[in-house]
Design a binder for these strands. Structure first.
Lengths: 231, 231
DNA sequence: ATAAGTATCTTGGTACGCCATAATACGGCT
DNA sequence: AGCCGTATTATGGCGTACCAAGATACTTAT
């Protein structure tokens, strides 16, 4: 295994990114950070022009995003940015609660102090970003917090699921974290998770993770139902 | 709303299936039931010939399956049927346990007798299929059992996740159900789920669902690690 | 003013061609 | 005989052009 790591360290980091992957990331990012709004039509040829790639690529990208749930395809009308309804958002928060709770419990049961330390580090990054009012930073570090949670117990499949679901509610996330008090309450709740993990308290970690997602979900629900009249 | 339903009832059920969707289903099915084996190369131009569609379609299909995790893309070599390693399979069973447990708990808390009745119906179908040694039927009705579990509490997102993960372990499923005793033990465990739901026992339903998946996972693990030397 | 017909937009789908790269086969050189 | 460099092949990545059909917007004729 040491050999493996050494081999991996030496391996040349070639870009290897195919044009399609580049385009995929671009479009996904454009949707996630609101350049394309929910309901917007995604006209293939327009995207070709904007991305500077051929229709072949654009079509593959749209299919991919469709299967991720970020794009919906209206029959005979074409792809649009998927609309997020309240019920679906609540379900996504619920699933995240179940999986993040599971990961937190496993972390606690692992009994490895390095886990809590790594999480604390991410948590501090989050606090700093809040202080700097760097909202993209908050999101990125929150993501990294949870990635740590999953990867420390080798649950990359669950992490993949959470990640997949999370992009679909990304614009909600960016609204919840701007909520009054969230800059204090959020990190505090995450600290509870870390504490429980450090104590080796599995059920406590599970509950703390569930609570954190639940409160984020509640804020999102308020935001979304308040906004519904606007859309 | 009554008007809506009436309108929907009248609506002509057109096939509407696009060629791409047809091809997608065909290839997915071919992978799932073993026509293409894990590790097999999926040569685009060959698939074109076999499916009778253009390369554009084939590529879109491959991308879609790639994002489903059924197909892996080796850089500079092309797509192959994804290999399933033991760790990943265990993670998938674990996630299913968490989500199916959640759904079972929600069903129990719903307190609607119709739920248990519908589940019993699926369960009886499973028993019959076992008796007829109709293994594809067992799989189909098991799937329908769980679909009921999720749809009765309107958790179609979670159902989608479970479904997505399940196709990746489909060949494992078809091996576990053939295991000695599984024809008795499996339905018995599922009956425990239904009973707990009928009693309105949320935690009991959760635990019963977890147990069922866990035992399926254990069998799969045995099968997979025994088989590893063969592959 | 309205209904019918028409043009346009856009996707679904096909065919073909080009290039880059990896693997393999081949042929010449020592 | 064995090795090395080159030609060929297989295949994916990507682009372009084209057609059919459904949806929509627009005109026009009555």
């Amino acid at each position: 295994m040491n050999d493996d790591l050494r081999g991996a360290a030496i391996r040349v980091e070639r870009p290897a990114k195919t044009l399609r992957e580049l385009a995929l990331d671009k479009v996904r990012e454009a949707i996630v950070n609101g350049y394309f709004r929910p309901g917007d039509r995604l006209v293939e040829r327009d995207l070709c022009a904007q991305l500077g790639v051929s229709r072949t690529i654009v079509r593959e990208v749209l299919r991919h995003l469709e299967s991720e749930g970020l794009v919906a395809n209206l029959p005979n009308k074409g792809p649009i940015v998927a609309l997020l309804d309240l019920g679906e958002a609540k379900q996504i928060y619920e699933i995240r609660g179940a999986l993040e709770g599971m990961a937190a419990r496993l972390c606690a049961e692992q009994g490895n102090p390095a886990i809590a330390d790594a999480l604390d580090k991410s948590l501090q990054d989050i606090r700093n970003s809040y202080q700097d009012k760097d909202m993209p930073g908050v999101l990125a570090h929150t993501s990294s917090f949870y990635q740590t949670l999953f990867s420390m117990v080798d649950r990359h499949v669950a992490w993949g699921v959470v990640n997949l679901l999370t992009v679909r509610i990304n614009h909600l996330r960016s609204m919840t974290i701007k909520t009054e008090n969230r800059g204090v309450q959020g990190p505090a709740q995450m600290a509870r998770i870390v504490d429980a993990i450090r104590r080796g308290d599995g059920p406590g970690a599970y509950q703390a993770a569930m609570d954190h997602v639940a409160s984020a979900g509640a804020i999102a629900e308020a935001v979304l139902s308040g906004q519904q009249s606007i859309d």
